[in-house]
């Protein structure tokens, strides 16, 4: 019958619309705010139509902001660059370490295998602060204080378990037949790994990489405690708009938009692999 199907379709559409509004309205509102001045934002009732201004964006990009209480220097672009550097390098390191390990867990049954896997996952259990506090007290001695290398190393806490878990699931899920056939032909395991397994696992790697990137990007405390001002990511940098002379909501909004952009672009690029890549060991049909 047509009726129940149509009703279902309409309900489905409404539900989807409600969901989209719930999640995207704040983003939309932030986007609007980024084109408003502070006085326009701090106004009730909030207005949908206003005279837009690019002042917030130009302030962020040019690095200076002229307020009534003087000219502020803004280092936002530098923060953006730091976030990008830290997240990208962390993910690359995690992938380099994690993909072979995930392959090993999936393809080989070796003693201590599950133990090691659980141990690696358990690093995710450690509350970041638990590690951070002694690190902040001792990093100085190992000479890793205030270095990008030190930060990237600590970021592995966030990225590595995630990548391991997701990529391992993907490897387990994909059939080892082709690799086996390739090996039987006389190639080494390395070739089987790099020529066959990895390319086939691209969706899983892409998905894991993207998620790890997002979580690394969103991190707040690590760089704050362990690095100086010139290495701070955007999460800390955005707080600079909370000044003694008032909160610059317009700039915070513009900063959020700018900080979402790189991740969004990455997500759009990896989008076609994203959903496919997150199959975690269930049986495929």
């Amino acid at each position: 019958m047509v009726r129940p199907d149509l009703l279902k379709l309409v309900l489905r559409g409404l539900a989807l619309a409600a969901v989209v509004i719930f999640f995207l309205f704040p983003i939309f509102w932030i986007l609007l705010m980024s084109f408003q001045t502070n006085t326009q934002i701090l106004r009730l009732p909030p207005r949908l139509f206003f005279a837009p201004t690019l002042a917030n964006y130009t302030a962020l990009i040019s690095g200076t902001l002229h307020t009534a209480s003087g000219t502020l220097q803004i280092t936002f672009l530098r923060n953006l660059g730091n976030s990008f550097l830290l997240s990208t390098c962390s993910v690359i390191v995690s992938l380099t370490l994690g993909v072979p390990a995930a392959y090993a867990f999936a393809r080989f049954r070796f003693r201590l295998g599950e133990n090691i896997a659980f141990t690696l996952l358990s690093f995710r259990f450690a509350p970041p602060l638990l590690v951070l506090l002694p690190l902040s007290l001792d990093f100085q001695q190992i000479g890793l204080s205030n270095t990008y290398v030190g930060l990237i190393w600590v970021y592995q806490l966030i990225c590595l378990p995630l990548i391991l878990w997701i990529v391992r699931g993907y490897f387990e899920d994909s059939s080892p037949d082709i690799e086996h056939a390739y090996r039987v032909d006389g190639h080494s395991w390395w070739r089987a790994f790099s020529r066959i397994a990895v390319p086939l696992a691209r969706p899983g790697i892409a998905a894991a990489g993207l998620l790890a990137f997002i979580f690394a990007w969103n991190n707040f405390v690590f760089a704050l405690i362990l690095a100086s001002a010139d290495k701070q990511p955007v999460t800390v940098g955005a707080l600079a708009f909370v000044t003694a002379a008032g909160i610059q909501y317009g700039q915070i909004a513009a900063a959020i938009v700018l900080s979402i952009l790189p991740t969004l672009i990455l997500a759009l690029y990896a989008q076609r692999w994203l959903v496919e890549g997150l199959s975690l060991g269930a049986v495929k049909g």
Partner: peptide, 26 residues
Amino acid sequence: LPYLLTLPALLVCIGILVPFFVAVGY
């Protein structure tokens, strides 16, 4: 082989154990 493949990841993360035990001490 599998141990070699998982070793680098393990080593990097083992470093975390040091601050962990220091924290236990604290």
